[in-house]
Amino acid sequence: MDAELYPYRSLRAGDIRFAYYRMGSGGPPIILLHGWPQTSHAWRRVAGLLSSAYDVVVPDLPGFGYTSKPDAGFDKKTIARRLREFAHGLGLSRVALAGHDLGGHVAYAYAAQWPEEVNNLIFIESSLPSFGQEEAMDVSKGGSWHFGFNMAGDISEELVRGREKLFVDHFMRREKVGLFDANSVSDADIEFYARALQRPGALRSSFSYYRTLPIDRSDNSVWGQTPLPMPVLAIGADWGYGAASEQTVRRVARDVQGAVIERCGHYPAEERPDELARLIADFLAKTPSAQHPAPQR
């Protein structure tokens, strides 16, 4: 494993010990948020590409990887609050945020609660509760089984325990929305994610991100009444959610650009890192930080 490429650091913020890596010697800060069931490892290819122009910060979200696994507080409102404490701990009071999958939920919760602290938002292969995710969860209309499974309770942990690699491999290489090129992520990478899920409390924490979706739904429905003021880039993948990410974001923001990466599944940071990094860099270059008007609170 090329973990040497990004030596982890630790930062205590509130009651959470955050594990993260940081690249780049200057430039505006961008925080990259991974999705489920992954870790900051998902950004290993993109982080380096952005580091020449940006201060790239890549944390493991609370409950994932080497970051603390708290007993509670997995609703995205709370996760975003903890992430903001982490950013402030690094001295970053205004940031660009990029979130993939559930990381997109967290990025939205951050941007919606503290819009004056988020210069730009990049929303990748994700959909938001209250604003489109319900369709992905509706099994009678082709939605995925894993929402109900992940939310079911202790039995989910019990069935996956010891079978984490099978589980991660299933999701990353599943027929529907999985990798376009099944080998673009190596077995060693799958193993890396699986081992992260094997740590005590990891499955509980990862499923807790789903079990709090009903709370997120009601938080989002309130926040969504005020459109996000900052520029937002929504990125989909043609073998993943396609245009759904942009459709979701258009319901909660007014300054939205969309892009769809071709021949790519649900994991563009790993499957199309060059294209994703270029989309992010072009977006940030066109929408420099601090140019959007201060929001009314």
Partner: peptide, 9 residues
């Protein structure tokens, strides 16, 4: 219905 999550599984 959350009680029938197993249908999809």
């Amino acid at each position: 219905d959350p009680m029938v999550w197993h249908f999809a599984f």
